[in-house]
Design a binder for these strands. Structure first.
Lengths: 104, 104
DNA sequence: ATTGTTGTACTAATATCATAGAACATTAGA
DNA sequence: TCTAATGTTCTATGATATTAGTACAACAAT
């Protein structure tokens, strides 16, 4: 089985996190996770190809924004809220609160 | 004289702002402005060519992060704190606070 | 076993970005 | 007017990012 690399908390970079979140599709994804808790990839209602979704998921994972856990055929995605709040207090909630009004 | 376009407050996009701030050089720039108030471009202590700095300043300006004002031969750069705090409450301070510890 | 689901890997096309050298424009000041 | 200071524009280049098509592997359900 393939090993999915996740950065350690202390290796999470602000610029990488901001870049990972600077895409509307990825903002949508983390917004969905934040609202509905951890969930498999196929739950996300984004108008893109599967391979493209994989790319975005990987981008978020490698930046340290999400945690990916394998469960059968599914990959369960969870937000690394605790790590993010420790590294960048207030950042995640500030971004997620924006989505509640007019996202994009 | 050249007209410098700035987006209106209501046209500022979260993804664009996050992208503008996802570069170490640009994080440095806004960190400097936040700490020392508005200042001309040549004040920034970044190891890049003038043309590159112009590119970064434009990226920040077009995303709605900074306000550029011409004063003689100088371009004075200011943070659009009020607009950003209105559009994305808490975002700017969360990002700037990170820089106070370990930036990059 | 067969079939369908789920997601990755590989590959490729296209687009965007960061960087900087050179030339140019504008302004201030001597 | 001449010169220095300040930035922009033009252009080019190498690096990444985005997107998707195809194939493949792991698993579930029948």
């Amino acid at each position: 089985m393939k090993i999915l690399h996740h950065p350690h908390r202390e290796d999470i970079q602000l610029s990488s996190v901001l870049h990972a979140l600077s895409d509307p599709v990825r903002l949508q994804i983390i917004s969905d996770i934040a609202a509905g808790g951890e969930q498999p990839c196929n739950n996300f209602d984004v108008p893109i190809a599967k391979s493209t979704l994989t790319h975005h998921i990987r981008t978020l994972r490698e930046a340290g924004v999400i945690q990916v856990r394998v469960q059968g055929t599914q990959h369960i995605i969870a937000l690394r809220s605790e790590d993010l709040n420790t590294c960048f207090p207030g950042l995640l909630s500030a971004i997620l609160n924006v989505g509640k009004n007019t996202n994009k």
